[in-house]
C-alpha cells in the first residue's frame, strides 16, 4: 500500500528533523502535514497510530515516524525517512562540538525561547487530540456525553497522578485498565 512516494516521505522527515527543535510535541508537525495538508490519513487513524506508537517502547517521535513510514510508504521510504529525521541533527551536534566546544553561546536565550515554543506545540497537540474523545466513526452526532466525559476524566486523572509523582509502573496499568474498561462497559 504505497500511498506516498519515498521522496515525499523523506522530504517531510528532513523538514522535521533538520528544522525543528525540542519536545515530542512535534508529533503535531506530522499530524498537520499528514492529516490537514495532504489528507494521507484520517484524523481518527492518525490518533490510532499515535496512541499505538506512544504505548510501545522506543523514542516517541522516532516510533511515530517509523510506523507512519511503514503505513504510508514502505520499508525503503521508512528507513530513508528515519535517516532524514535523525542524521542532520546528529551531524550538526558533532560540528557544534568541534566549532564551539561546550562554551555557553550568546544564542542560549534564543534556544530557551525555542524550547518554550516547542512545548507550546505539545499543548496544541493535546487539545487537538482531546477533540477525538467526542468524535465517533459510528455516530454522526458524536459520542454520548457520559462516555465523552468519562474519557476526559481518565485522561485528567492520569495526568494529575503523573504530575503528583505516582510511579509509572502503577499508573500505566491502572490508566490502561480504566480506559479499556470504559470502552467495553459503555458500548455505543
Amino acid at each position: 500500500m504505497k500511498e506516498v512516494s519515498n521522496w515525499k516521505w523523506v522530504a517531510l522527515n528532513l523538514k522535521i528533523g533538520a528544522l525543528s527543535f525540542g519536545s515530542s510535541g512535534r508529533a503535531l508537525l506530522y499530524q498537520k502535514a499528514i492529516v490537514d495538508e495532504n489528507r494521507w490519513l484520517s484524523d481518527d487513524e492518525f490518533r490510532e497510530v499515535f496512541t499505538l506508537t506512544q504505548v510501545l517502547p522506543g523514542p516517541n517521535l522516532v516510533n511515530l515516524s517509523v510506523y507512519l513510514g511503514f503505513r504510508l510508504s514502505g520499508l525503503m521510504g521508512t528507513a530513508l525517512g528515519l535517516l532524514a529525521l535523525a542524521l542532520p541533527g546528529a551531524v550538526m551536534l558533532v560540528a557544534a562540538y568541534h566549532l564551539l566546544g561546550f562554551a555557553r553561546t550568546p544564542l542560549e536565550p534564543f534556544f530557551k525561547g525555542v524550547s518554550i515554543g516547542s512545548v507550546l506545540l505539545f499543548f496544541v497537540l493535546v487539545a487537538k487530540n482531546a477533540q477525538g474523545f467526542g468524535q465517533s466513526a459510528h455516530f454522526s452526532k458524536g459520542v454520548p456525553r457520559f462516555k465523552r466525559l468519562s474519557r476526559f476524566a481518565v485522561a485528567i486523572g492520569v495526568g494529575g497522578f503523573a504530575m503528583s509523582g505516582v510511579s509509572l509502573s502503577l499508573l500505566l496499568p491502572l490508566g490502561a485498565l480504566a480506559g479499556i474498561a470504559l470502552e467495553f462497559i459503555y458500548v455505543e
Binding site: V55, V126, N129, G159, M163, G179, L182
Partner: peptide, 13 residues
C-alpha cells in the same frame, strides 16, 4: 481505551 491514558501522560509531561 488507551487514548485517554496516552493523552493524560502527554499533558502532564
Amino acid at each position: 481505551g488507551l487514548r485517554p491514558l496516552v493523552l493524560g501522560l502527554i499533558a502532564s509531561s
